[in-house]
């Protein structure tokens, strides 16, 4: 017998007297704990990459990108903080409807597979930055030591505090390369 409530979880009290067992009840508890631990450990690796946007990617954007793209003023810094939430709003509904459409054809990937795809996407994004850093290095824009990292671009002079001391991360305290 096919119960539409079957997927809603084992916690809810079903109205039917002979409730069908949720398949999770057939999984040994130790397996459930191992599955959670595996997801959490993989999650740690994901957050390690993702939260670079708060530190090193901001430094990369400050020192190694052109802030005046499409404009004559350095406005990129103003819109930079809006990119992450804007992407969530713009792509949340299309991606959710994509899963729905795939589900209708029975092709929706499982949740671990979606996490795996997300990690591959994060990896691809890092690879784009890797290629960008390599391309900059061949032009001499990115110093091999990476200690300074400021691009000597003619237009970077228009960036406020662009000529100020480089503030990097070194054990959590700001450092000035000239002093090292």
């Amino acid at each position: 017998m096919e119960d539409p409530q079957r997927k809603s979880g084992a916690g809810g009290a079903p109205a039917a007297p002979a409730a069908p067992r949720h398949p999770i009840e057939d999984v040994p508890p130790l397996h459930r704990v191992f599955a959670l631990a595996a997801i959490f450990i993989v999650g740690i690796a994901f957050w390690m990459v993702f939260w670079q946007n708060g530190s090193t990617l901001a430094l990369w954007a400050k020192n190694n990108t052109d802030w005046t793209l499409f404009t004559d003023r350095p406005v990129a810094g103003m819109i930079q903080a809006a990119i992450n939430p804007a992407f969530i709003i713009l792509f949340g509904i299309p991606v959710a409807s994509l899963w729905k459409r795939l589900d209708r054809r029975g092709l929706e990937p499982s949740t671990p597979m979606k996490m795996c795809l997300g990690l591959v996407c994060a990896s691809a994004a890092s690879a784009v930055l890797w290629a960008a850093a390599l391309a900059g290095a061949t032009r001499g824009a990115s110093p091999a030591s990476g200690s300074s990292g400021r691009t000597p671009s003619s237009r970077s002079a228009t960036v406020p505090f662009g000529d100020g001391p480089f503030v990097g991360i070194e054990g959590g305290t700001p450092t000035i390369p000239g002093a090292r």
Partner: peptide, 28 residues
């Protein structure tokens, strides 16, 4: 790992990030 931003070249750093996320995807 953000500490290594100043120790490695940026390309090496991003390569390490790529390898880390790819390794996590492989484990998954």
């Amino acid at each position: 790992i953000g500490v290594y931003w100043n120790r490695w070249s940026h390309a090496t750093f991003f390569a390490a990030l790529t390898a880390l996320s790819l390794a996590a995807a492989g484990v998954l």
